[in-house]
Write a protein that binds this DNA or RNA. Structure first.
Lengths: 222, 222
DNA sequence: TTACACAATCAGGAAAAACCTGATTCCCTC
DNA sequence: GAGGGAATCAGGTTTTTCCTGATTGTGTAA
C-alpha cells in the first residue's frame, strides 16, 4: 500500500512567495499542495471544501488575517491543523498564534530541511515551533495553558511598575533618570529593568524600544 | 550557438522564501541562479565576486538593507543590474529604490508570468516596474529626474557608514558586535556611534531606535 | 493559618560599555 | 596643495550594566 500523502492548503498573500513555497512543499516526498489562498477568508472557504491535513498560513494577509482565520479553523474544523508561517520570532506573535489554535509556528527564515521536519511533526499531530523561538516563550505558554487562563493582552505580561519602567526606557530616560522620576533608588530601577527584560525575553534596549512601540506604549515620533 | 543564460544573484534574508524564489527563477528558461545572499553585505560581496547580470534584492534585510546594498552596487558595479523585490507598492519605497539605482521593482505578489517578463526586461537593459505601481509614481520620478535635482531624503543626513551603524544599533547589536560585523576596531565603532549621535543631535539609544524606525531603516517588528 | 509565590524595594562588587580627547590616513574639492 | 570630511584607531575616565544576593508586604492556595 502507499502511504496517504499529507494534503496541504497554502495561504499566503504574496503570489510570488506563495508560488515559491508551493514549489518547495511539492518537492517534499509525501506532500501534496491541494489548494492555494491569497487571504484568510479564501483560506477558510477552501479549508471547508477540501479539509486539508495542514493549512500553511501566513499571518500578515489583508482582508482577513491569518490569526483570525486560524481561530475559526481551529473552532470549526478541529481535524484541520494550522501551521503558521511568520517572519517574526517575536514572543507576542507566537503566543497569539498558539492561543488562536495553531499547531505549528514556522519562521520564514527556516531552512528547507526544517520545513520537512515541521510538516512531519504537525502531520503526526504534534506541535512544531521553529527552534529560534525561545524556550522562555514555550514555557510561558505551557504555564499559562496549564493555568487554564484565557484572554491575554501584551499589557498583562508586565506589572504596572514594569510598564512604567519600559515606557521611560523607550522614551530615552537613563536608569538614573528613571530612579529620580519614580523616587526609588538606582538599584531598584536597575532591578526593575532587569526583571522586565527577563519577563519579555528581550535583553537589549533597542529591542525594548521596538517592543514598546509595537504595543503602543510610545510612538516613534516625539 | 546557445544563448547565454541570465545569471542571477538572489538576496533575501528569509531562507524559506529565498529557496522558494530560487526554485521559481530556476524554472524559467535561460535563467540561472548562481548565488544566494542572506543580507545586503553578503550580496555586495557576492556581486563583486560573481558579477551577475541581475541581483534580486529584498529591501528589508538586517545588517545592511537592500537599498544601501543597491546604492553601492549601482556605484561600484554599474554593469550589474538590481531588481528590487518588495512587499510594498508604497511610493516612497519605489522612489528610494529608483534613486538608489535599481533597474526594476517587483512586488512580491507578482505572478510567475510577471517574473519572467521582468527578468527579460531588465536583462535587456530596460527598467521594469510592477504594474501595480501607480503611474503617478513613475511620472513623479521622471519629472524629478528630468527637473534636475530635488529630493532631500532623511538618508542624506548620514554617511553610508553612519547609516549602517545606525541600523545595527537599532537592531540591537552592541557596539562590540558592530565592530565585529564591520571588521573595524571597537574604538572606531564607538567613534562612528558618537559622530552619528552628533549628526542627528540625538544622544540616547532609544531616540536613535525611534529615528531609525521613522525613516524606515528598521521596523518595530523584526 | 501557615506556606508560598510574587511584586517592589535595595546593595555590593565585577564587568562592560559609553564618553572625552585626541590622532592619522585617504580622498575629493576648491 | 590646502582644506575638509569620512573613516579609522587609542588611552584613560566615568557611567552603566550585570550578577548575586536580600528584605518586606500582599494575596492566595493548601
Amino acid at each position: 500500500m502507499t502511504i496517504r500523502p499529507v494534503r496541504i492548503l497554502l495561504a499566503e498573500d504574496h503570489t510570488l512567495v506563495r508560488a515559491g513555497i508551493r514549489a518547495l512543499l511539492q518537492s517534499l516526498p509525501g506532500v501534496e499542495v491541494i489548494a492555494e489562498a491569497g487571504d484568510g477568508r479564501e483560506a477558510l472557504r477552501l479549508a471547508e471544501i477540501h479539509r486539508p491535513d495542514i493549512v500553511f498560513m501566513d499571518i500578515a494577509m489583508s482582508g482577513m488575517n491569518g490569526l483570525e482565520a486560524t481561530t475559526r479553523i481551529a473552532r470549526d474544523l478541529p481535524q484541520v491543523r494550522v501551521m503558521i508561517l511568520s517572519m517574526h520570532a517575536n514572543e507576542e506573535y507566537v503566543l497569539q498564534a498558539l492561543r488562536a489554535g495553531a499547531s505549528g509556528y514556522l519562521l520564514k527564515d527556516a531552512g528547507t530541511a526544517e520545513l520537512e521536519v515541521a510538516v512531519a511533526a504537525v502531520a503526526r499531530g504534534e506541535t512544531y515551533l521553529s527552534p529560534a523561538i525561545s524556550k522562555q516563550v514555550i514555557e510561558d505558554y505551557v504555564r499559562r495553558v496549564g493555568g487554564g487562563q484565557g484572554g491575554e493582552s501584551p499589557f498583562d505580561r508586565l506589572t504596572p511598575r514594569q510598564r512604567e519602567i519600559l515606557q521611560l526606557i523607550a522614551e530615552g530616560r537613563t536608569t538614573q533618570d528613571i530612579a529620580r522620576v519614580l523616587n526609588i533608588s538606582l538599584k531598584t530601577a536597575e532591578t526593575h529593568r532587569a526583571q522586565l527584560m527577563e519577563r519579555l525575553d528581550i535583553y537589549d534596549v533597542p529591542g525594548l524600544v521596538r517592543y514598546a512601540i509595537r504595543i503602543g506604549l510610545v510612538s516613534p515620533d516625539h
